[in-house]
Design a protein around this nucleic acid. Sequence first.
DNA 1: GTGATTCCAGACTATATAGTCTAGAATAAT
DNA 2: ATTATTCTAGACTATATAGTCTGGAATCAC
Lengths: 201, 201
Amino acid sequence: MARPKEFDPERALAKAMNLFWRLGYENASLEALMKEMGIARQSLYDTFGDKRALFLKAMAHYRDQTNSQMQKMLNESPSVRDGFTRLLSGLAAETREQHERGCLLLSANLQRDPKDVVVRDFLRDNQARVEAIFLQALARAQRQEELSPNDDPVALSRFFVVTIQGMRAMARLKSDRKALEQVARVALAVFKSSNSASLSK
Amino acid sequence: MARPKEFDPERALAKAMNLFWRLGYENASLEALMKEMGIARQSLYDTFGDKRALFLKAMAHYRDQTNSQMQKMLNESPSVRDGFTRLLSGLAAETREQHERGCLLLSANLQRDPKDVVVRDFLRDNQARVEAIFLQALARAQRQEELSPNDDPVALSRFFVVTIQGMRAMARLKSDRKALEQVARVALAVFKSSNSASLSK
DNA sequence: GTGATTCCAGACTATATAGTCTAGAATAAT
DNA sequence: ATTATTCTAGACTATATAGTCTGGAATCAC
């Protein structure tokens, strides 16, 4: 009956995601997207809708990819501390290109029009998801006595969200592994001093 | 001889800075800038050059303003820990509007075209300045025995730069004072446990 | 082959907006 | 009053780019 789709929408979306990741929403022109995705205008609009819809799909793709990766990394580590170490040191050890492109969702947060509640709500939801992933791991850490009962796992999960975003911002500006590793080491000290975030209330 | 300037360029620049701060570079149209600054197109171009030049001047203004404020805050506090507490808790306690606009320079970092080395270098220079301000305070903290000799003041200064940027990103997404305060408390724990960032080498 | 669909290439439209230019009024010194 | 300058208002230009539309070739089922 009809000619079947020739390109794989999944692969094309991944390509689009990569371009948005490197350039940001504004700087990724349709021209560039078409070229990167290897498809023509028509196919792009037919398959993904307009540029904004494509961007939202790319964000969702990015979220699923990175969150399941983080979750896996934390679950695989018997010691939760090691899991977070791998996370933060892994970030520090990335290439200059990786540091430069940063985090798609952090960029989206700071590039978005303040009035854009769709993107805002997407990102809020994602932050909640990431906090939940961290919280799960940190609760386990507490059970395993890697944290003291005085530590607040919710506070710590938020702390790590903040730390990672800050490190991403720093890495984007200057790919300095040593500096990033220093920051990671300070942050990871929450695991050792058994009374980190409690007393001062 | 001639008609003197009627508007105060300093005040106009401050107004422009505020608009860029709230909206970002792209979303601050010339139309909106003219209105906010209370001057006409011609005067704007005559006085500040093009939009980009105005933005760079606004960034410099912002930097000078915020950095001297931070320095003052840290110098005024006998206890360095209190200084950083005021800094971080002050950030957490800002209004929703303030949280939403975030930090002009963090936004500039994540909004900029990756190829834009002028903005990049400006921001790198600023980060070095902020680190220096923090370092000065942290070195004093070490002399005053608020930190252990094992702590690395350089690492800690970078840690605080990262923490503040991460908190700014988080606050922009959702103005949640409690969450921000939790993060601040965790971060400030570097001052108490006298062996924070050292052992793991 | 026919028909339905999807592909590509590229023309075309619409829109936003940065930047320039023009005209004329206001303000000061001489 | 004259002159030089700065102001406002707004027309105008140039440019980039998102999105639509057209034509024709390729690919499948029948």
